[in-house]
Nucleic acid binder design. Structure first.
Lengths: 228, 228
DNA sequence: TGATTCTGTCACATGTTTGTCACACAAGCT
DNA sequence: AGCTTGTGTGACAAACATGTGACAGAATCA
């Protein structure tokens, strides 16, 4: 959810402005002033989207875009071109440029973010949503629903993800660290004991249905979802 | 995976451009310049998707789309409309047009392919102009009318499209982003919170009939239309 | 044209969720 | 038994998500 956006812009003021807006909107901003540093950033940080200035020193933005498109590793990274007023829309979006969208300077932050989100939206792969059943519980990812013997069970977002993970990884012990990685994500820093609390909340939610014993404590190791 | 795409476009240059891009992307391109040759292609080659120019000689694209939608054999073929800048989005995405998505000329090839892939991916055959009934509500697309237990319910255009989408996609959670794509269209840039407001307006309109609980909030995920 | 509806956005109200404690309790060890 | 370590539990404030009323501009209609 926290997409990385590479800003390729030689003008420091504009670069700063872009980075500010992007960061403000909750994205991670990477920066580059020219084609070389852009490539370096791309190799090291694998951005999800590139904001590319049409005019760049040495190599122009168009040429960089072309190169990006011809390289298998970067072919699928969407590009939004930054152009000066008056550039021909046809040229910008034309075949050779390979841009997904463009925006003319000066631009409103709102429009910039809207375009970024729109482009990202179309490039995010679809996730799976198969029905999961285990231990008398049924979980429907698409409907975001859990039922035990037909009765609905209300869960908060985190408990839902936690249960989903457990149900798809039953009969195996997971440490608190592993659960944090899998359910919270690798980039979140929270106390390990937080897992305990959510386990408790999940058990409490399952308890009315008599399903709370499905989640077992393995002292010294972690937790396990087990049908037995 | 090798989908057949029918391009219906009278302007030779654009037709060529489209065919080139489509082929390049690994699809099979079929071509037609007018409604008659389009029908011929459809009958002979059963395309998986149709790229249709809004303006066509003789019969306009809109009329062809309408015909496609009313013919049982072609009802389920998704359509992407090609429009000039400035066309009304309501008209384009409106129910009478029957388009699944649209794109304005001039467009970027990447954008086009992204749309094609998106439409193919999510394409669930759904009849655009048939009466929909769900959760005690009845919606008549052709008449642009909604009733609950016989009593008419007044809705604005956006609320109508929103409800129509929900009723044809019940029991499933949609994020604000997905709803924007599906109901507002992929080219419209509005705040995500706008969805909330329209949900509220829709609920308010359904409330006199006691049907407002059909639209449920799923915290952290989005909204769901559900009969339960 | 003016009147009327519709839309998108905001600011604020309200309600949930989350991570963290501090402490209680349980299990293993010598 | 005492000691040590690990886990359960209730409370809480801050962060966060959603509901809601108001408003101005756009679109529509007569």
């Amino acid at each position: 959810m926290n997409a990385k956006i590479l800003i390729v812009e030689d003008e420091p003021v504009i670069q700063e402005l872009l980075a500010f807006n992007v960061t403000q909107a909750g994205f991670q901003a990477l920066r580059a002033e020219d084609a070389d540093s852009a490539w370096q950033q791309i190799r090291n940080n694998a951005p999800d989207l590139i904001l590319l200035d049409w005019m760049l020193p040495n190599t122009s933005g168009v040429i960089l875009a072309k190169q990006l498109r011809s390289d298998t590793a970067t072919r699928d990274i969407p590009i939004i071109m930054l152009t000066a007023r008056g550039e021909e829309r046809d040229k910008v979006l034309g075949l050779e440029s390979g841009a997904d969208d463009y925006i003319t300077k000066p631009f409103s932050p709102r429009e910039l973010m809207a375009r970024i989100r729109a482009v990202l939206r179309r490039h995010v792969p679809q996730r799976q949503d198969e029905v999961v059943a285990a231990g008398g519980l049924e979980l429907l990812p698409a409907a975001h629903r859990v039922t035990a013997k037909g009765a609905a069970i209300e869960l908060g977002p985190t408990e839902f993800r936690l249960l989903h993970f457990f149900m798809t990884h039953a009969e195996r012990v997971y440490s608190r660290t592993q659960l944090l990685d899998q359910v919270w994500g690798t980039q979140v820093f929270v106390e390990e004991r937080t897992v305990d609390v959510h386990i408790r909340r999940l058990r409490a939610a399952l308890e009315p249905a008599g399903m709370d014993s499905l989640i077992q404590t393995v002292r010294g190791s972690g937790y396990r979802f087990s049908v037995n």
